[in-house]
């Protein structure tokens, strides 16, 4: 049987820390991979919406923020709840599910672009509310410190790295498994049918509102899971500004660059986009700084200031030359290249 890309990806990822015991480079790679796993979970949540169902959501960062803050409030010892890691994560997922449902119920009937602006607005609402309700959320300071996760009596510390690595990888594997199961069932079939032809699907008895709402809530739940993991990783909820429009856009870019509607594509996309966005640019900046090639007053020489330019150009060129993404699903590829025969 053919080994699927996403399982191969997870398998190779699982080996990285083991190799890291012997090769220092693999160890630093492993440290860099942890945020990528979290972004991959976020992007997989968006993939359910945009990739499978064809709903554009421009506010996934809001669900991530809700997840992070819910997790922080549930675990931090300045509040009376003080749940452990596992119950807190479960409750956070529930919070995301409910938030998705509450936003979706009144708005899911809207046509694509109207829904896009509603999700965009929701992102703003959440961000501003978190900023304004400083009695609860501590405003721009964020909620901290958060206790580390525990697993069977073992306490995660910030200086260790392998336990975190496997924790996030485990969650990612779980999310991949659930998404794949959904995709290959009547649920995924209905989602894809809605993406292709909503009216025909509804004439076949698929209730588009119900299925879209399901996609919306499940996607939101995954995004808030990503938020909870992110908060536990930082040891802080982070400030509301960390979950702005850019995060939503990065998630969207991961889905599109990787390959819409394809779980393996999303994993690859997370690797490429987050990798390029932070790691490569950072390394390059450090290199230039080390060799004293950057003047602090000149805006043009710092590579960090070219970030948006490069990111933007990459998106434009990607859409121009490879709109189906690096690893497209068979269906999306056929939609974008209607005149080519599919591989048999």
């Amino acid at each position: 049987m053919k080994l699927r890309f996403h399982w191969a990806f997870l398998l190779v990822a699982a080996l990285v820390p083991v190799v890291g015991l012997f090769v220092p480079a693999a160890r630093s790679l492993g440290e860099l991979l942890r945020p990528i796993f979290i972004m991959a979970i976020l992007a997989l949540g968006l993939n359910i919406l945009t990739g499978f169902t064809g709903i554009l959501n421009l506010g996934v960062a809001a669900f991530m923020a809700l997840g992070a803050y819910a997790y922080a409030i549930l675990t931090c010892d300045i509040y009376p709840f003080q749940f452990g890691f596992w119950p807190a994560v479960m409750l956070t997922v529930l919070v995301g599910l409910l938030a998705g449902l509450m936003l979706g119920l009144p708005t899911i009937r809207l046509r694509g672009d109207y829904l896009a602006i509603v999700t965009l607005g929701f992102g703003e609402i959440v961000q501003d509310s978190l900023k304004n309700m400083d009695v609860i959320t501590k405003g721009t300071q964020g909620i901290n410190p958060l206790p580390g996760p525990t697993f069977a009596g073992y306490m995660f510390r910030s200086e260790t790295y392998a336990p975190w690595y496997y924790l996030f990888l485990g969650f990612l594997a779980l999310v991949v498994l659930l998404n794949r199961n959904l995709q290959r069932s009547r649920v995924g079939r209905a989602w894809i049918a809605i993406r292709e032809d909503e009216l025909a699907a509804s004439c076949m008895g698929v209730n588009p509102m119900k299925m879209k709402l399901l996609a919306f809530s499940l996607g939101a739940a995954q995004c808030s899971l990503a938020g909870a993991l992110w908060a536990s990783f930082l040891g802080s909820s982070g400030e509301p500004g960390n979950y702005d429009f850019q995060v939503s856009i990065i998630a969207l870019c991961i889905v599109i660059v990787g390959g819409m509607g394809n779980i393996a594509g999303v994993l690859l996309g997370a690797l490429v986009v987050v990798g390029c966005n932070s790691l490569v640019l950072e390394t390059f900046t450090n290199f230039l700084k080390a060799h004293e090639l950057i003047s602090s007053t000149n805006v043009y020489t710092a590579p960090g200031n070219w970030k948006y330019m490069l990111f933007g150009l990459a998106l434009i060129l990607m859409m121009r030359f490879k709109p189906e993404g690096l690893l497209p699903s068979r269906q999306v590829k056929a939609e974008l290249h209607p005149h080519e025969p599919p591989p048999s």
Partner: peptide
Amino acid sequence: FNQMTVLDNVLLGMDTRLQTRFWHAA
């Protein structure tokens, strides 16, 4: 549904008669 297989097209028509819910599938 042009990008779905013949079998999936027919299965989609049948789906509403099924008892499977999303948690069964997941």
